[in-house]
Amino acid sequence: MNGLVFLRVVSNLVISAQNLDLTFQTNDGPVHALKDVSLKIGKGEFVSFIGPSGCGKTTFLRCIAGLEQPTGGQISVNGMTPEEARKARAYGYVFQAAGLYPWRTIGGNIKLPLEIMGFSKAEQAARVARVMELVDLSGFEKKFPWQLSGGMQQRASIARALAFDADILLMDEPFGALDEIVRDHLNEQLLALWARTGKTIGFVTHSIPEAVYLSTKIVVMSPRPGRITDVIESTLPKERPLDIRESKEFIEIAHRVRDGLRAGHQDDV
């Protein structure tokens, strides 16, 4: 039975990190951003990384994306090195700021990766229309970013990350700069999108409710040095209305996350 489960996990493995270490050399001496981080992420999982600033959650996401080079350990994405995976355009990345080009329309912004990757004009148009519908922005293709609200801009940036059909979506505090109500709405939409597309999502946040609401797996991290203190498999059902956040199960998971964060801090003192 155990062997069977193991086999299933291995065949579906998308991201695998083994004893990952990363030390930045700064003017104030070396900073240990990641220490001995090991994690496996299976296909279709929604994994949140939560922890206080400096716990390495963003750094770990950037390692997966091949934007940072780990100084020790192994990491593979779709069975390749992160660099190769980046070259193969294996993931879409969403940053905290939408970062849309002000000189391009929303449609033009979503087209950007498609132009760079050399899709045909017809294919570009079809894909733009499809992902705009997916993030509920149809009809805004000809608008410029400044004509949209912050939440809509962030949805456009998610559409941009989805446009080239990567299996993995990496999101670095994508809703961190938005207000609570917009954030709730986008969280709901993100879950729907995840259900429709079956992507593997890595999601950095510092909000406990957000992490618990969205994830199938919550990775709790703590700083100095950045490391994983707890990995929580969510027992919540896949179908999650917003009011699931008042359920007993939800509150229990949130408790465990909070305990994990607190434990990380006690180590520190």
Binding site: A65, L67, K87, F95, G99, Y101, L112, I116, M117, F164
Partner: peptide, 21 residues
Amino acid sequence: AMQLDLLRTYYASDAQGFWKL
């Protein structure tokens, strides 16, 4: 840095970065 990182995630060439960004 974020704008440049975004282009890196697309594996964009320097020339593409120049003309498009």
